[in-house]
Write a protein that binds this DNA or RNA. Structure first.
Lengths: 205, 205, 205, 205
DNA sequence: TATGAATGAGATTTCATTCAT
DNA sequence: AATGAATGAAATCTCATTCAT
């Protein structure tokens, strides 16, 4: 049986050099992606930044989407870990403080990985692998919040819906500030997000 | 050699038939943008939906971007009008009810014009005309909220930042629901958004 | 929306194969321009003659105009060299003979590069880069002639204007003959041009 | 036999209004043609200048080429008349003076109709109607000159070839000056052309 | 493992010409 | 006699992906 030309980017054993090249491509992807957005990013841009060639790109990734996917997997892991660290919600000032600290963490992570995160959304079609990944990660976030809200025993509010709304807020507000669409004095954003979230959960009491 | 174009799609006097065609193209644009997203939409799709020819398209718009811009201007007007109708915020249940009604209105408008609205953000680069348009409209929204928050005399919260966060939430939550990224029992979303917004403003008291 | 091109056909380091392809495209360009004229020539024709693809064309030239420009630079060099070889004008028969030899050279060069030369003029608008290139080369020619005419001490004639007229004659007459607009028994043209030029300079004496 | 839709621009009986429109289109053609060159001129430009519509254009001319042809016929008539007025060539100063006067006439005509004249040449392909027209007119010119040269009894020069060269010179030199490719103090050009022509015919003697 | 070169399908845009009123 | 609108064939240009060395 004549072996078909070996599948381009089928996972192979990589030696040190290969791993380094792959890493360079991933970094370049993140950079270009951040600069131009997912749609506008061209393979040509990426290989230029990675200082390598088109041919090499397809040695490591079957296509553009796969590179994005690889990038997304990395980010997804970090996000899920962060979701796991969401503090318990208590009505006292300590509850606000804990939330505030967490919001700072989120902001830092978002600053580093925002472009990739946003790609999940830009890829509007939920049916794609990217879209599904986004859904999964967002679910982790939402579930963490839902759990905390339920634990407070707050009533008069749908915990799932509220969690969704708050997650949406946290992501988008960071996005606006990060892309400079609105100016934000340093540190005001996490504080505000913490306050609003807290108020949403205990405000009706 | 590319003959210098004289003046493509320069605004002309249009008779009834021409106006109708232009309108058909705008509608088709909205449809296709909604289905495929702004980036993926091809002129070819649009003219197919409008049941006309490529040539005709360029009779009315210099390019895809211009059609999008025209669409955006329409939507921007509607959004600003809606922002102007934001009710006063009062701490009593009537305040929540008024907000709830407004959130329904927003949801309806968003369902109709969401793709165009989102494209403002997809077009991340703030420097572009599109980006500016988005900024301006968002400012109208935020300002309306800021004013209402200030009027409540609520302290301990930065009104501008809070308004920004809430606007972010309102837009994104609608987006998630609309694109089916999360399921939402009918009508729960506006209610939740109203509650969270209300809680954010009066929760700290 | 037209993604901003990064840098099309930016001069790259080319290896042997690339250089060969580029050369093939230049040759094909010359051929097609000669057959169809510069305006009528389509990129499609050129790549067909060069036996390559559209994509490849744009790997080497940003557009048709740039290919033409590259071609023009080559020809301009040859023409300037030829201008430099214009013999001194002497009133005796040897002067005519020298001129005659030179006219033959011109004819040969023109036969090879005529279409490109003529395109400078077709591109009537003097303001363009192309137009300027034509002007510069023609100036080299004219200056060479002016110098020779002045050296003869011939009076009663404006050397600059006379040179211009003679250059015009030499170019156009070759053009008429080359395009078959007039039939010319072999070799009559250079002889006649030499005679007329000679007569123009010494005829008034 | 069902009458076919009457041939668009078949010569029809035109009333005053129709004639005026046709005239306006011809004038507009000349204008646009002069501004942009034959190739770049678009029907759209012409009808804009003529302040009429596309539909109307095709009421009077079957296509763009036909308009140019009509324009050319006008000019051709004037050129042939001018050729007929070429003075006899005499070796004395009076011969130069007569030539000089004639060159002035040519210059004036060329200034008015140059763009159309040049179109004959731009339309390089001799096979076209336009190309043939050019040939015929140029032949008239050349023949007039040939006759005059023969009449002088000058020998050592091929009259046909010399005439061709001189006609080429006269046309192109005027072209260079008219398009501003070379600066010419007022009136120097005709004088120089007269001198060179005269020298060419009698110089060898 | 790397890469320069090539490819071609697909998207955009132009403009002479025709149509319907 | 006039015109606004429509058409579609052709041309240009882009870029993800594959090939050959």
């Amino acid at each position: 049986m004549p072996a078909r030309r070996s599948d381009p980017a089928a996972p192979r054993e990589l030696r040190a050099r290969g791993l380094a090249t792959r890493e360079r491509l991933l970094d370049a992807g993140a950079t270009v992606f951040a600069q131009r957005g997912v749609h506008a990013a061209r393979v040509d841009d990426i290989v230029k930044v990675a200082a390598t060639s088109h041919g090499t790109f397809y040695l490591y990734f079957a296509n553009k989407e796969e590179l994005f996917h690889a990038l997304a997997e990395q980010v997804a892991g970090e996000l899920e870990a962060l979701a796991g660290r969401l503090p318990p919600l208590t009505p006292d000032p300590a509850g606000v403080a804990a939330l505030d600290a967490w919001m700072r963490e989120f902001g830092a992570l978002y600053a580093r990985t925002g472009p990739v995160i946003r790609a999940w959304t830009e890829t509007e079609m939920v049916a794609t692998a990217m879209g599904r990944l986004g859904t999964v990660v967002w679910a982790a976030f939402t579930n963490a919040l839902v759990e905390r809200i339920r634990a407070t025993g707050a009533d008069g509010i749908d915990p799932v819906m509220a969690a969704l709304a708050l997650v949406a807020m946290i992501e988008r507000a960071n996005y606006y500030v990060l892309t400079g669409q609105v100016p934000a004095p340093d540190g005001t954003l996490p504080a505000t997000l913490a306050r609003v979230t807290h108020g949403a959960v205990f405000g009706g009491a």
